[in-house]
Design a protein around this nucleic acid. Structure first.
Lengths: 120, 120
DNA sequence: ACATCGCATAGACAGCTGTCAACATAGACA
DNA sequence: TGTCTATGTTGACAGCTGTCTATGCGATGT
């Protein structure tokens, strides 16, 4: 509740423990954090990227597995992955030549609960 | 699974019965529909509007209840409500002079489940 | 009839966003 | 060393988006 929160928190962390959307009016700050998360997810390419990574065996996928699924240039895919990573929805790990992305399922679970949980 | 789905379906309806994001890779069409929904929700003002309406007593609120909560012009609020209504997240009903909006909680529940449900 | 109120629409405009081509980087291998 | 492969970065640009002012339109009240 400080006047200006430190920017070291990713949107994902801020959403971790919020009352569901339908229970009480969201604060402005909370709305901005959640909106940032949703904005990262609100793109067809990024949604499919998240889905591809999350449903991939082992829960992770390297970029080479992903680019083939789209008719887009590699830099564009890289850009979208960066967006998802910066918001905290994807984890990055470089192993040898390849970079592996892993979905943060708790983040998705928290976000889903915040949106979908019914009012008591 | 038809080649081109009829456009009479709102995004909300299309999302009603989808496998969760983490279970299997989303199709392009599904991704576009879900992204449209998320895009409608991925704005701080619209998020707060949804939250205000959903958590309001009776599950509905008239526009006059909403405009006061923002430092925005009335047309801007009207615009955001229209976006939420057109995607199927809000229902509209005119009663006398006032217009009441009601949150479609099943739509929110479906969307939340699609995002947050863990892989089996 | 006239003014007022509640809400929507139209048009304009700055700022953001998705995409690409070109380039950069870093490791593997010959 | 040089080259190839996998990925990220930069800069540019068209298209979208959130906001405003001005206006419209129906219902209510005087």
């Amino acid at each position: 509740m400080s006047k200006s929160a430190p920017l070291t928190l990713t949107p994902v962390q801020t959403v971790a423990c919020c009352a569901p959307l339908s229970r009480e009016p969201m604060s402005r700050q909370q709305a901005e954090q959640v909106a940032a998360l949703l904005k990262a997810l609100a793109d067809p390419v990024r949604l499919r990227l998240m889905s591809l990574v999350a449903s991939h065996e082992g829960g992770e996928a390297c970029v080479c597995d992903l680019t083939d699924a789209f008719d887009l240039s590699q830099p564009t895919i890289s850009h979208h992955l960066k967006v998802l990573h910066e918001t905290g929805l994807l984890d990055r790990e470089k192993r040898g030549v390849w970079v592996y992305y892993r979905a943060r399922t708790e983040a998705l679970a928290n976000l889903g609960a915040l949106i979908g949980a019914a009012a008591p």
